[in-house]
Design a protein around this nucleic acid. Sequence first.
RNA 1: GGCCCGUUGGUCAAGUGGUUAAGACUCCGCCCUCUCACGGCGGCUUCAGGAGUUCGAAUCUCCUACGGGUCACCA
Length: 488
Amino acid sequence: MDTSKRVRTRFAPSPTGFMHIGNLRTALFAYIIAKKYDGDFILRIEDTDRERYVDGAVDKIYETLRACGLKWDEGPDIGGPVGPYIQSERMGTYKQYAEQLIESGHAYRCFCTKERLDELHRQQQEQKVSNMVYDRHCLGLSEEEQQRLLDEGVPYVIRQKMPTEGTTTFKDILYGDITVENALLEDQILIKADGMPTYNFANVIDDHLMGITHVVRGNEYLSSAPKYNLLYQAFGWDVPEYIHVEHIMRDAQHKLSKRDGDAYFGDFTDKGFYIPAIINYIALLGWAPKGENEIFSLEELVREFDISGLSKAPAIFDIAKMTAINAEHLQKRLTHDEFKKLALPYIRQSCKREDIDIDVLVDAVQPRTKLFTDIPEMVDFIDKMPEYSTELYTSKKMKTNPQTALEALKLILPVLEAVDEWNTEKIHEAVFAEIERVGVKNGWMLYPLRIALSGKALTPGGGIELADILGKEETLSRINDAINKLSE
RNA sequence: GGCCCGUUGGUCAAGUGGUUAAGACUCCGCCCUCUCACGGCGGCUUCAGGAGUUCGAAUCUCCUACGGGUCACCA
């Protein structure tokens, strides 16, 4: 990879809806590469297709990129030296360059109607033509004929004139040199009948004018890349370096699509994923770090990234792995305060009580949270003791059952009543003194306590932690209730 | 169908002619333990197939198979 010039990459989405996770990953790699080499990351909106334009989609792009921390150095909202950064505002430019190509003999006007093109296509299919390309009907038009059609106001497109012989080679950093026969290349449309440029043309013009040095894009553009090279050559411009990244798949046969309900960025935040973890995971899809660690913040990704770690094969999306990465971030990377801030809204979904020790609760919840959405169910027993069966007191391993539980709770009640300073340490001290005095195993005493305070088989923390969270009054009250329940 | 690209365990993947073929996730056991989780230990499972080149191939070459991409006045 050539980094002798200032590196400039771009993310060039079309405002056609939500942010696909594969698209976001392309943006991520473009961002990382720019930042890795202290370069610029540019945002350009490709809105040349008026049919597919969706209102609000541009805002969605800004919003998602910002949420992910992919800060752009130049873009439609903040401007920059090579704007405008919205293609629909650059119309004159494209037309002008296309005309230039006509004059230099690299392009020509085509007046073919949609009907003729459809018919041509139908015939080619019928005859099983292997290389179905435009038949260059309008290339043979005389000057006079062209002028006549122009005068009549017949709509036309501008097509690129491909060489009929030889080969074209382009270079991709990942794939190396790829060579194709020029005869196989179609005379692709550069300017549409409505005057708008096609993606294929606008891209080349903008990437050049904006000084893009490295084009990071989806693998679906790999086969059209030779045509771009020919365009660059026709203009006498330097060709940028390409990095085509493979798709993210649902399984070996299918790309991740909206049908699966988990193709868009928003789908994952809705499911309780933490944004830096999403970024971390998608970076790992199709890229492998040098070392063994795979938990990274965005800044660390920039530091660790190396182009040689990129994969040429499609990667299958694995929600289980993403969940594990998410858990790592939540449990290990976040401080108590950071986690508290993010988790509180989820805690409050099912736990409204204010008279509990929230910090102890947060500490209990954090190491057990894989997804934020796990939290409400985890803490719902705090507001209200759930209905539960006394069979919960039975544990083979702890050697407990409803009878021993009643015994244990009766012993523990006065001990807890006597605790003055209500915190985990003091409660622990008092309870363990009692355990020692009675001469029983920890579990024999503590397991029943946990059940009595929660009514659940699984809880965030053991009996002592729960007691601390609930406070002295509530703890004693719940133990009394349990004793009554077990006495029946 | 033509052209282009790819193929290491269930998944992500390291590996660039000589390795007991890393690591992570998943799953299963065991340990730790006041449940679960965490943590620790261990296990299952991999070079798509076939020819070559070579003393030696997951690594190089060719063929086959399979998969993906592309063949729009969409991007």
